[in-house]
Design a protein around this nucleic acid. Structure first.
Length: 178
DNA sequence: CCCTGATTCGC
DNA sequence: GCGAATCAGG
C-alpha cells in the first residue's frame, strides 16, 4: 500500500484521536499495524501526548549481520492518550448486564465511547471482535459489539449464546428425525 | 491469550 | 521510505 497524502492525513487524525495502531491499520486497510507504527515514527508523532523523553541511548547489540532487535523501549514515557471527548459523539449504550467484558473505554455506568472515525467504518472488525450488530442498521448509533470473541467465532461469548440459541430445540427435532 | 507501542534493519 | 520481525510490556 502506498502512503498517499490522504492516507497519511487520516493516519495522523486517527492517531491523534488515540486509536491504536492496529485499529488504524484496518481502518486504512491493506496494511498492518507495524506499517502504521513505522509510519507514525517516521512522521515523528509517536509520543501521542508526551513530547518529553530524549532517547537515552539504547544498548544496541552485536553488530555483524544478525538481526539483534534486542532491547527496545528506553524512551517512550507513554502518557495516557488524550481522550478528546468528541463533540456530538454518540455514546452507545450496552444492553443492561449484557456484554460481559466491556473491554473498551468505558465511562461511568457502562456506556461505551467509540471514536467517530472508528465507527465511521466497520469499526475495527478483526478475527476476534464480536460482530454482533447493535442498534438500527443505518441508524446513527449503529455499531458492533466489539468485544473479544474466540478465534473463529464471530461473536463474543454472550452474543454467541444468543446467536446459537436454538440448539436445544434442534436437538429435540433431530432425535426424532434420525 | 489477547493486546499495546518501539525499535531495528533488510529491502 | 517502508514494514516485517522482534522486543518489551499490560
Amino acid at each position: 500500500m502506498t502512503w498517499t497524502d490522504e492516507r497519511v492525513e487520516l493516519l495522523k487524525r486517527l492517531w491523534g484521536e488515540g486509536l491504536s495502531a492496529s485499529q488504524i491499520a484496518n481502518e486504512l486497510g491493506g496494511i498492518t499495524r507495524n506499517a502504521v507504527i513505522g509510519k507514525v515514527h517516521r512522521l515523528s508523532l509517536s509520543g501521542r501526548a508526551r513530547p518529553a523523553a530524549a532517547a537515552p541511548a539504547r544498548p544496541r547489540k552485536a553488530t555483524a549481520g544478525a538481526r539483534p532487535a534486542t532491547n527496545a523501549r528506553p524512551a517512550a514515557p507513554a502518557a495516557p492518550p488524550p481522550r478528546p471527548a468528541i463533540a456530538g459523539n454518540t455514546a452507545i449504550k450496552l444492553a443492561p448486564a449484557a456484554v460481559p467484558e466491556p473491554r473498551r473505554e468505558t465511562r461511568g455506568n457502562g456506556e461505551v465511547v467509540v471514536p467517530i472515525s472508528l465507527r465511521a467504518s466497520l469499526m475495527t472488525l478483526t478475527e476476534q471482535t464480536c460482530k454482533w450488530p447493535i442498534g438500527d442498521p443505518g441508524g446513527d448509533d449503529f455499531h458492533f459489539c466489539g468485544n473479544r470473541s474466540k478465534v473463529g467465532v464471530p461473536y463474543c461469548e454472550y452474543h454467541s449464546r444468543i446467536a446459537y440459541q436454538p440448539v436445544q430445540e434442534r436437538r429435540r427435532e433431530r432425535r426424532a428425525a434420525v
